[in-house]
Design a protein around this nucleic acid. Structure first.
Lengths: 370, 370
DNA sequence: ATTAGCACTCTCGCCCTTAGAGTGCTAAGT
DNA sequence: ACTTAGCACTCTAAGGGCGAGAGTGCTAAT
């Protein structure tokens, strides 16, 4: 059964499926229609429905049930003489209360786990792998964002001189993310006490900052600016900028896989609809809408078609979950596909992958002995 | 005029256009056909050709010239009663010796330069911007890779303890790229001389490595492994791994923009062809073939349709250039589009952008006073 | 309530036709 | 010898008509 965390109750969704009281038959018919349509991508008629699913009634009965479901807004009709197609609301009801099996096969779990065990925990590779698994397993487009803390805090800084003799300031944030910026050469050298600066001076400045600024946020760093030596102050200024830039930016550097999958879906065969999707996907600001909900609730969150606040995404569904800890670093992962998304597969996969990533993160850190 | 660096002479290209001696009329007709087709995306007939371009001959004459060009393999016929379309070889001849104006408008140059001046030199933002400009300016898909040195060399390392008490090893390579890996906690603590390790111990180890390993390659680092303290040795081991992983990897973390543009091209309206492209693009290993050529020659390099070694890319053209210094860090940038690529715009744009990025890099480092 | 039967509607695929574009050839003109 | 006008020919793309099939909604009987 689907756990209640998946329940959708945001203002962006006008229609509450809970308000609908369906008869057992209506529920069975709706489920059958959705599942058939998910498989075939073709409007499903009353005849095939009784044939394929073991409904112990005649097609006429099913027809009347379908008509009722259509009146309730759960099904719709492409045209007079076509079968029925689930509406967004129909999918919603299906996802919330009709869908069976919402855990992954043991075999799938092991397969995913195995792939993770094959790769080193370089964060980028890790995310790439997650995206690739998600895409492959659901045949949709997958999106994974790095885990980021809400508030950017100072972690550790290094000042490195490169082969081309430029200086790079690399700031590791408290949450493990890394940002960097080239230092302006002339400014730096001017601040040096005597003549052109040496790596030793830079190391000293870095050590000072690391001792003084650990765990501080951008404004806190700014407040210390005056109290440091000139060179350290200059670097701290850069650090403050970097912190400010990282602050509040929720989605950036997203990893995507399986773009080609979406072309196999008949609903996106012609490019017109695809275009909007691609644009949204490349800007990837569509994830913004997920952040508040996922931070607040956790669990798998499903957004179906018109429930989406972004117009260009009225024909797609999102299945997303957060990973990491809300109080620390939080990341998003999930899939994007047509509203005819294979929910029974996508939802448990996303759930499992989010849980697995949490587990791996925690076990990695739990190896401590305290 | 097109400079000779653009000339294509690799074994992968069986047909050398230089071997073809065309009459002045044939050249004019070919140029007119290509330019018309680039604009309209429709097969061009003899009639419209004399109308639109000021050819002082009749359509019958043009027809015979077209027939000659077709016999030479420069034009082709979709079907009996359609106009002519340039073949890959036709495009090649056009690009090499027929195309006019291969410098960018002054206005475009300023526009691009202006956009660059607006943004801080955080390397990622920089590349993203370049990709975005390229895509916008050529209406194609753009690809930009970070500048990387052929051989990964040690630059500077830092060991940071994060909020979750995990330890991160951040290695800045000599070429300015940054790689990272989490350290295994239990191993680290075991290596500590007395009890759980402190940030001071880590700083010390990092300082040792920075003093000892600067500029070394992976095997060189490996050779030093024994000569360091246990903790430093362990980190150096990780560093060696990171260097090895970075070594030889030419393309990674590519930045792409304008994917949606390609959907506007009629040749990719239906998804079948698009699919292959998307897949290749996401793996982005198609860039590999460019590396040797660009390293050797520099300048703008054009690969048209079947000249491409990758089957899935037989219907697309690439216009790419390297930036950076071949001996130091080298990056690739360029665009990917249908063979009906707007070469007269794409080529100078790519050339200009590569030159601009070189200029910015150099001016940035030249600010030194020595 | 359920179901069989039936008339009705609408789409989809098919064929046919036609209009139009463009060619290649030939014969005449320069 | 090159160019061009003229013309017959070919092929596609678009449109119309037609029939098959699928699916519905209604009604009347169980």
């Amino acid at each position: 059964m689907v756990d209640e965390r998946m329940t959708q109750g945001d203002p962006q969704i006008p229609l509450r499926s809970q308000a609908l009281e369906l008869t057992e038959r209506q529920r069975n018919v709706l489920r059958a229609v959705v599942e058939d349509y998910l498989r075939t991508a073709e409007p499903v008629g009353s005849k095939v429905l009784v044939d394929r699913h073991g409904l112990a009634v005649s097609s006429a009965t099913v027809r009347s049930a379908m008509a009722e479901l259509e009146a309730l807004g759960l099904l719709s009709h492409p045209h007079t003489s076509a079968g029925r197609v689930p509406s967004d609301l129909g999918y919603r009801v299906y996802v919330e209360s009709l869908m069976r099996e919402s855990v992954l096969d043991r075999a799938d779990e092991l397969m995913i786990r195995h792939q993770f065990s094959q790769v080193q925990l370089t964060s980028n590779e890790w995310l790439r792998l997650a995206a690739s698994i998600l895409a492959g397993s659901t045949h949709s487009v997958s999106v994974v964002t790095p885990a980021k803390s809400r508030r950017a805090r100072y972690g550790h800084v290094q000042l490195a001189e490169l082969a081309d003799r430029s200086r790079l300031c690399v700031l590791v944030l408290n949450d493990g993310n890394v940002v960097q910026r080239h230092l302006d050469r002339s400014t730096i050298d001017r601040l040096s006490p005597d003549g052109p600066i040496a790596q030793a001076d830079l190391d000293l400045a870095a050590a000072t900052l690391n001792a003084e600024l650990g765990g501080l946020s951008a404004p806190q760093v700014r407040r210390r600016l005056g109290k440091l030596a000139p060179l350290a102050t200059h670097v701290a200024e850069v650090v403050a900028q970097l912190l400010e830039e990282a602050d509040g930016v929720v989605v950036e550097d997203v990893f995507t896989a399986g773009l080609a999958n979406v072309l196999e879906q008949p609903e996106f065969a012609q490019g017109a609809k695809l275009r909007g999707i691609l644009e949204v996907l490349q800007r990837s600001d569509f994830l913004e809408q997920l952040v508040p909900v996922l931070t607040r609730r956790g669990g798998v969150h499903v957004i179906i078609g018109h429930e989406n606040t972004i117009d260009a995404m009225h024909e797609v569904s999102l299945v997303f979950a957060p990973y990491g800890a809300p109080d620390r670093a939080l990341g998003l992962l999930g899939v994007l596909g047509p509203t005819r998304m294979p929910y029974p597969r996508a939802i448990p996969t996303v759930r499992y992958l989010a849980a697995l990533m949490n587990e791996l993160i925690n076990s990695h850190y739990a190896e401590t002995h305290d």
